[in-house]
């Protein structure tokens, strides 16, 4: 039997109204997932910010270490004289 004819024979809710309810149910699911994704995006941004800060700190530490080791090295030709 044609589903539409079947629906017309025994409709619990008019078709256009039923569509709205079904759409609402799917929208609820999508909205909840989207809210969750938005929260995760915020956390991800925070992690990215923290990681950039750590990268900067590491660069500074490496620069300081390089400068210190350069200062410790004896000048070129100091041993010969």
């Amino acid at each position: 039997m044609n589903p539409l004819a079947l629906l017309a024979a025994a409709p619990a809710v008019p078709y256009e109204k039923a569509g709205r309810f079904v759409a609402a149910a799917f929208i609820v699911l999508f909205a909840c997932v989207l809210i969750y994704v938005a929260i995760m995006a915020t956390k991800l941004q925070r992690l990215e910010r923290d990681l950039s800060e750590l990268n900067r700190a590491l660069d500074e530490q490496e620069r300081a270490k390089a400068a210190a080791s350069a200062a410790d090295e004896p000048p070129v030709g100091a041993e010969a004289s």
């Binding site: 589903p3 079947l6 629906l7 025994a10 619990a12 809710v13 078709y15 039923a18 569509g19 079904v22």
Partner: peptide
């Protein structure tokens, strides 16, 4: 998916 005979699209 076919429509339900009792409830229809809902």
């Amino acid at each position: 998916a076919p429509n339900d005979a009792d409830q229809g699209f809902i």
